[in-house]
């Protein structure tokens, strides 16, 4: 009886419980990333996957008796900063894409390779700041 209790207690230690939770979050985010089409939801799914990775890392660092591993915590902090930067950039891209095409979904299937491409080396092209004024002529369905 005592042996069983000890096994349960070992299983429920934070050092094992939280990595398991992190793995579940990673898989859940992957599932959401495949299933959902709206880009904002896909970005949220990637963030949830990232949180899963950090939970595994911190959980692994908290295993054992002594104080938790400071290197793992420093790595997590770095990873969080990277995730925030990538998220902010991705959201800016999504807003820009919506402005150009009128939608923020990434539909499955092959993209249109033969859509016209603007050439920035030509004289008539100028980055006049407001991207909105270019939008109307480049509207195309995904």
């Amino acid at each position: 009886m005592n042996g069983l209790l000890e096994t349960v207690a070992h299983t429920l230690a934070p050092g094992l419980l939280y990595p398991t939770g992190g793995a579940i979050l990673f898989a859940l985010g992957l599932y959401g990333l495949i299933r959902r089409h709206h880009l904002v939801l896909r970005i949220l799914a990637l963030n949830i996957m990232g949180s899963g990775v950090f939970m595994v890392l911190l959980g692994v660092a908290a295993r054992g008796e002594g104080p938790p591993d400071p290197v793992a915590q420093a790595l997590t902090l770095t990873g969080i900063v990277v995730a925030v930067s990538a998220t902010a950039f991705a959201l800016a891209l999504v807003v820009h894409l919506t402005r150009l095409t009128g939608h923020a979904v990434m539909l499955p299937g092959p993209p249109d390779d033969d859509a016209p491409v603007e050439d920035i080396s030509r004289e008539e092209h100028h980055a006049d700041g407001g991207p909105a004024d270019r939008a109307s002529s480049e509207d195309r369905p995904a």
């Binding site: 991705a90 891209l93 150009l100 990434m106 249109d112 491409v117």
Partner: peptide
């Protein structure tokens, strides 16, 4: 950075794939 529809939608795909 050219800011065209084709480039930006290519970039969004590329970014999500890279983050994954």
């Amino acid at each position: 950075f050219t800011g065209t529809a084709a480039a930006v939608s290519g970039a969004v795909r590329y970014l999500l794939v890279n983050i994954l």
